[in-house]
Amino acid sequence: MAKANPRLIAAIEKTVAKLTNGAAYQWGHMGACNCGNLAQELTHFSKAEIHQYAMQRHGDWNEQLLDYCPTSGFPMDLMISKILEHGLTLDDLAHLERLSDPKILSRIPKERRDLMNKNSRQDVILYMEIWANVLREKWVEENEPELEFGQEKKLKLPVLV
C-alpha cells in the first residue's frame, strides 16, 4: 500500500470532493476515470492532457501500468513517475482502477462490497474515502509518539498550505 503522507491523503480527499461535486467521470476515458481523476489532482494535468498522453500507447490504465518504464520518455510513463513520487505504488493505481485493494474492501460491509462496480462514481467515491482513512490511520500510527494506556489517538494531519 502507498506510503502514507499528508499530501497524498489531501489529494485523495480533494479528488473525492471533486467527484462528489460533479467533476467529469467516465471510466473509459483515461483522464476522467478512477486513476485519471486522482492523476489530475497529483500532477495538475487536465483530463484532456492525461488522455492525450495515454493515447500515445495502447491499453487502459492497468495495461499502461504493466508497460510502465520510468526511462522510456513516453509522456504517460513520465506522468506515472510523477504520481509515484507522491508515495503510491503501481499496485495502488491498478487497485484504484479496478476498486480491488483487499485492505480497503475489507472495510466495506459485504452486502455493499458485493455490489461495487469499478465504473460507478459512487463506488469510486466510497473506495477513495476509505482509502484516505486507511492512509490517515497509517500516517498517524507511524508519526504519533506512543501514547500511554487509555489515551486516544487523534486522527489529525498537519494543515497543508
Rank of each mutant, 00 (worst) to 15 (best):
H44K: 15
L38H: 06
M116W: 05
K47F: 14
I12C: 02
A10G: 03
P102D: 04
Y127S: 11
I80V: 15
R107W: 01
A48C: 03
C69F: 08
L42R: 02
Q122C: 07
D123M: 12
K18W: 10
L157P: 01
E152H: 02
N62D: 13
I80E: 13
K156G: 04
A54L: 09
M30A: 14
S100I: 00
G59V: 03
Q52I: 08
S81Q: 10
C35Y: 01
L115H: 14
P6I: 00
I80G: 06
A24L: 14
E142W: 04
Q40N: 12
A54M: 13
L38N: 03
I125A: 08
P109N: 10
S100A: 15
W27L: 07
E146S: 07
K110Q: 12
Q122P: 10
I130N: 07
I80W: 11
D123Y: 09
K103V: 13
Q52E: 15
L65S: 00
I130F: 03
K138W: 01
A32Q: 15
A24C: 08
A23Q: 12
H29T: 13
L84R: 06
Q122M: 12
L66V: 13
G31H: 07
Q151H: 09
R107M: 11
S120K: 03
H86L: 03
T89Q: 07
L96N: 01
I108H: 07
E111A: 12
G28M: 14
K154L: 13
Q122I: 08
D67V: 00
D123Q: 09
S106P: 05
V161L: 13
H95N: 14
N117C: 12
K156S: 10
K154C: 03
G73F: 10
I130M: 09
E41A: 08
L126S: 06
K82H: 15
S46N: 08
A132E: 06
K47V: 01
D67P: 04
G150S: 05
A23L: 10
S46Y: 12
C69A: 12
K154M: 11
M116R: 09
N5P: 03
G22D: 06
A32L: 14
L160A: 06
R121W: 08
G36T: 01
R107V: 05
G31R: 06
K118S: 09
K153T: 10
